[in-house]
Amino acid sequence: MHSMPSLGSAKQDWRKWARTTRKSTPDVSEDVSQHLAQWIYDQDIQHVLTYKAFGSEVSLERLPRLLPEVSFYVPKAEVEPDPHMTIHRWDTAIQRHPLGMLQPPHGTPEEDPQILQLVLIPGLAFDQQGYRLGYGMGHYDRFLLSLSRDCKLIGVTSDALLVSKLPHEEHDVPVQWIVTEYGLTETNSGF
């Protein structure tokens, strides 16, 4: 395993470290899904944006089966006219994206992001302040700024990719909680 970059390292060095670390980390999807299902149930949340995992991301495919009474949605990354995300019902994600994840096909009806009570956010790594190391496209950061302040944000990762501090930009939006195979922890985001 590569050693963790220093805080002053470029984001691409952090991304390389995170990808290598994630590939060598056991799959924690089952434990993470169980923790999330219990938390969502306890919070009485009804509208959740999750994601379709690709590569070695933590998979949350079981959540809709664990919580059949909850409405789940998936994002679709769009690049035209400007990079942005649209929201669609979970079961519409049937088309393979070039990166490998499933997404809704062109023309699928969009849902209003204002109904979301919770957004589950994948990332290459997260830090204890709630900042996310993403893939560098900025789709989530732009999208998160458009949500209701009441919408809860949870970063999804393995404990091996939860670090004390990541480099971040002023426009980055921190999550309030992070879930790993050990459960949910509140961040120091102050969000």
Results as ranks from 00 to 15, higher is better:
Tyr182Asp: 13
Ser146Leu: 08
Thr20Gln: 14
His168Cys: 08
Lys52Pro: 00
Gln114Lys: 13
Leu60Val: 07
Leu49Val: 04
Phe72Val: 03
Pro104Asp: 03
Gln38Ile: 04
Pro64Tyr: 08
Asp112Ile: 05
Val119Arg: 08
Ser164Ala: 11
Val48Ile: 01
Leu145Phe: 07
Leu99Gly: 02
Ile45Trp: 06
Asp13Arg: 03
Leu133Ser: 02
Gly134Ser: 05
Pro81Trp: 00
Ser189Ile: 13
Ser59Phe: 01
Leu147Phe: 02
Thr185Leu: 14
Pro105Val: 01
Glu186Asn: 08
Ser29Met: 05
Ala10Ser: 14
Arg15Asp: 00
Asp159Met: 09
Asp159Ser: 15
Pro75Glu: 01
Ser146Gly: 01
Pro68Ala: 02
Asp42Glu: 15
Leu102Ile: 02
Asp82Phe: 07
His106Cys: 00
Thr21Ala: 03
Val48Thr: 07
Asp159Trp: 03
Val173Ile: 15
His2Asp: 10
Gly190Gln: 14
Pro68Leu: 06
Ile115Ala: 10
Ser56His: 12
Trp14Arg: 11
Asp82Ser: 11
Pro5Cys: 05
Phe72Ala: 09
Pro109Phe: 01
Ser56Leu: 00
Phe191Leu: 14
Asp91Tyr: 06
Leu99Cys: 02
Trp14Phe: 14
Leu99Thr: 07
Gly55Met: 06
Ile45Cys: 13
Pro83Phe: 04
His139Thr: 08
Thr20Pro: 00
Leu66Met: 14
Tyr140Phe: 13
Arg89Asp: 10
Val173His: 08
Met101Ala: 11
Leu60Asn: 04
Phe191Cys: 08
Leu118Ala: 10
Trp90Glu: 03
Lys23Ala: 12
Leu102Asp: 03
Leu102Phe: 05
Ser3His: 15
Asp44Ile: 02
His88Cys: 02
Asp27Gly: 03
Asn188Ile: 06
Gln12Ala: 13
Met4Asn: 02
Lys11Ile: 00
Asp150Lys: 13
